[in-house]
Nucleic acid binder design. Structure first.
Lengths: 204, 204
DNA sequence: ACAGGCATACATACATGAATGTAAACTTGC
DNA sequence: GCAAGTTTACATTCATGTATGTATGCCTGT
């Protein structure tokens, strides 16, 4: 059954990416062959090679369908018409990112990113993530400094350390939960952690 | 140069494991061949297959030369003749684990574990880690409960959430730092984070 | 409006290379 | 001399990329 309509072709492309998510999650990126992905989508490797250059290209296309939690957090925090004061905007942005991580697709893709792939295979991904992390760090430090100027951040806490604490908690939360989502409900634990953190670092 | 003395044979085994650490770190576990490891150690694949059953076996042998940070933390916290009160024992154990993570071998192996391998390839590792994490969680909750009974833990913080915060911060710290060790000095930032955390959760 | 032509969207077949595991040969310690 | 280490050689598997086949959708000219 060759040559579909334009819309059908776009549908197969999406089906291939869906299939990739499923198989990558099951077997890990390096151990899955393009044949397996194609079969999962009810296609053959020919379809894969039509839509994508190779496995790395397909992998990148898969990533482009989701927004990284760090990216989400940054976009929220940097939103120019955000009505909240520094600490509150940070808190809300973090909660929002946790919220969105639970969406099925986001959850699948980030489980793959955290636990089912090796960075060495895609060096640019590594560099990209490092850039995002440092950008995120800078922005957060800025916010915590604003909070300190306004007197809402406790004086004994440096903006830099507060930032590292928040970023580590966030990264660790994702890492741990995605490894074993059954062990706890991130929708409950996450917000309670974040709220406790912010409640405890404000000037008492 | 065949057939060495017993001591020399043991030395080649160690050399192979050293080589594995280096190459796994450079190229990722799945992309490295046993040939590459053998060459790095100045041997051929024959030597590898003599000392190890296959790649997975060699990988496990490599892991057995180090102690996981979580394992280290647990051992410290559960030490029966630990002279410290609950919160202080937790704090010290965490600092100690951070300390030991910086040892070259530990750092290399855990970089591999966090960033250079896919869990799906070694399912038992995954299960092992999950068991360790839940064991660690239970023990920490216990300590925080003791602290609450003694009145040293702030009443507004539940032992469960305190535990998750500490574990997430710890995991995130390792994850972030091992991905990009140049971005900050964990020997400085780590302790400052941990100290701030404990200073902020005690009853004021 | 429709007939031809061309590009599209795949499937199939094939060539290649790389890694694995094993068997056999070889060399030296004990 | 036998078994422990180690090398070399070989067979097999498997994924990849490419080349080719092919039927159909889509468009253009009249």
């Amino acid at each position: 059954m060759p040559k579909r309509t334009k819309a059908e072709a776009e549908a197969t492309r999406e089906a291939l990416l869906d299939a990739a998510e499923v198989i990558f999650l099951e077997r890990g990126v390096s151990r899955t062959s393009l044949e397996q992905i194609a079969r999962q989508a009810g296609m053959t490797r020919g379809a894969v090679y039509w839509h994508f250059k190779n496995k790395a290209d397909l992998f990148h296309a898969m990533l482009e369908r989701v927004k990284t939690p760090l990216r989400q957090l940054l976009d929220d925090v940097e939103d120019p018409n955000c009505p909240y004061v520094p600490l509150e905007s940070l808190r809300r942005a973090t909660l929002h990112a946790i919220e969105r991580l639970q969406r099925p697709r986001s959850r699948r893709v980030h489980t793959i990113l955290f636990h089912r792939c090796e960075v060495a295979s895609d060096v640019d991904i590594q560099a990209l993530h490092e850039k995002l992390a440092s950008e995120c760090y800078d922005t957060m430090v800025e916010r915590f400094e604003q909070a300190r100027e306004r007197g809402t951040l406790a004086e004994s806490i440096s903006p830099e350390i507060a930032t590292r604490m928040l970023m580590s908690m966030f990264a660790g939360l994702m890492y741990d939960w995605l490894r074993d989502p059954e062990s706890y409900d991130i929708g409950d634990v996450g917000p309670r952690m974040i709220d406790t953190f912010f409640a405890r670092i404000v000037r008492q």
